[in-house]
């Protein structure tokens, strides 16, 4: 299990390779990359700044990863989440899951993203052409996390 919270970009290919290289028991590796979306109804995003709670963020991501490992038979989990200032098109988050078979890897990856969105202490501030504001939490994200209960 690998959890990283960092300012720098990450290399999805390298993280995927690290999770299964040298092993022959893994049959499926699923990855999700979250990217900063630039457009939202014509009001263009200039930059996004992610604030987080150092210490709790890492612990929370580790707790979420641990929960995924208890629910599914996983051979590996990697979560990388960036903070600081990001521009449209930049990568924000990476979740990689490895398992013997694809279903566990897909489901665990989806679970990790849903839980991360409602549990990991990050806050997005958007600088748009129209001004700056904190991103509001979405009820649809809460509902997405609820379905795993």
């Amino acid at each position: 299990m690998t959890v990283k919270v960092q300012r720098e970009d990450f290399d999805p290919g390298a993280e995927i390779a690290r999770l299964h290289e040298g092993r022959s028991d893994i049959g499926a590796v699923v990855s999700f990359v979250g990217v900063v979306r630039g457009d939202s109804g014509g009001d263009k995003l200039r930059t996004m700044t992610l604030e987080h709670f150092p210490g709790m963020t890492e612990r929370e991501l580790e707790r979420i990863a641990e929960e995924a490992r208890e629910r599914w038979s996983l051979d590996g989990v990697t979560i990388v989440h960036r903070y600081g200032e990001l521009k449209p098109g930049e990568r924000i988050v990476l979740v990689v899951t490895a398992a013997g078979h694809r279903h566990a890897a897909f489901e665990a990856g989806s679970f990790l993203m849903d839980y991360l969105k409602t549990k990991a202490p990050f806050w997005k501030r958007e600088m748009r052409e129209s001004g700056e504001h904190w991103v509001e939490a979405r009820e649809s994200d809460d509902r997405a996390a609820e379905r795993w209960r």
């Binding site: 979250g34 709790m56 989440h81 988050v93 549990k119 990991a120 990050f122 939490a137």
Partner: peptide, 29 residues
């Protein structure tokens, strides 16, 4: 809120040795 870096609700107990954080609903990912 979080008490000692764990999510906590309004009924969670707090004391002198605790670290209590307040923040908006999270928006990561």
């Amino acid at each position: 809120a979080a008490v000692n870096q764990e999510h906590a609700d309004l009924l969670a107990p707090v004391g002198a040795r605790d670290e209590v954080a307040f923040f908006p609903p999270v928006t990561g990912g």
